[in-house]
């Protein structure tokens, strides 16, 4: 027996989510239609609304409902520092830390040579245009400390240094409150390689 076409279409649609294969997509579809019709309705509306209202902030490229997101629109924030992150979740995390009052640029991705994602696949021209507005004096690269995040940081640094900008990288090392005994060897080894002089 075959599924009705609309059910098949829903299952196929759910498969666009990362990590969702045919089996989990089918399970999700049955759950939404059988167990939680109200939830399914809410999901459909939310998706509709998000697609209709969300765009990218003109300055930092994160998701926003207005041409400028609330961070970029806030003129009390320092305009001369720009922090580059991979994804909107990274921006939110940095905001939670309350350690930074400058502006952001969200790459919406990273270089990943092993997946065939090269310089042309992320919008670096846009970052350069943003960083070269004449106001930004320092660009802080806060991409992840994965091989992909590091190679992205390298390319960004080379591009921005060629424009005469000061480029910095967030530091890496022992976790705050970390005890040597309990930290993983990779982190500890790198903290040793990147040790600094005490003044």
């Amino acid at each position: 027996m075959k599924n009705p076409p609309s059910l098949d279409q829903l299952i196929a649609a759910l498969k666009v989510l990362p990590g969702v294969g045919p089996k989990s997509a089918q399970r999700m579809a049955f759950h939404l239609l059988q167990r939680d019709k109200a939830g399914a309705d809410k999901l459909a509306r939310a998706l509709d609304r998000a697609l209709l209202n969300l765009r990218h902030c003109e300055r930092c490229h994160t998701f926003s409902e207005t041409p400028l997101c609330n961070v970029c629109a806030d003129d009390k924030r320092r305009q001369e520092v720009l922090c580059v992150v991979e994804m909107p979740a990274d921006l939110l995390m940095l905001e939670q830390t309350r350690c930074y009052d400058g502006l952001y640029f969200v790459l919406m991705g990273r270089l990943s040579p092993m997946d065939g994602v090269g310089p042309k696949d992320i919008d670096l021209e846009r970052l350069i245009a943003r960083a070269c507005d004449g106001v930004v004096a320092e660009v802080i690269v806060a991409t992840n400390f994965t091989a992909e995040g590091e190679v992205t940081a390298h390319l960004i640094a080379e591009m921005l240094k060629a424009q005469g900008l000061k480029v910095t990288r967030i530091a890496r090392g022992m976790p705050v409150g970390g005890e040597l005994e309990y930290v993983d060897p990779g982190t500890l080894a790198q903290a040793m390689y990147e040790r600094r002089t005490l003044s």
């Binding site: 040579p113 092993m114 990779g186």
Partner: peptide
């Protein structure tokens, strides 16, 4: 962990990706 190799960065990292 067997160790002995600092994390690759910069040009060395790009070279590493090429090997991989």
């Amino acid at each position: 962990w067997r160790g002995g190799v600092p994390q690759f960065a910069g040009a060395r990292l790009v070279t590493g990706f090429y090997l991989n």
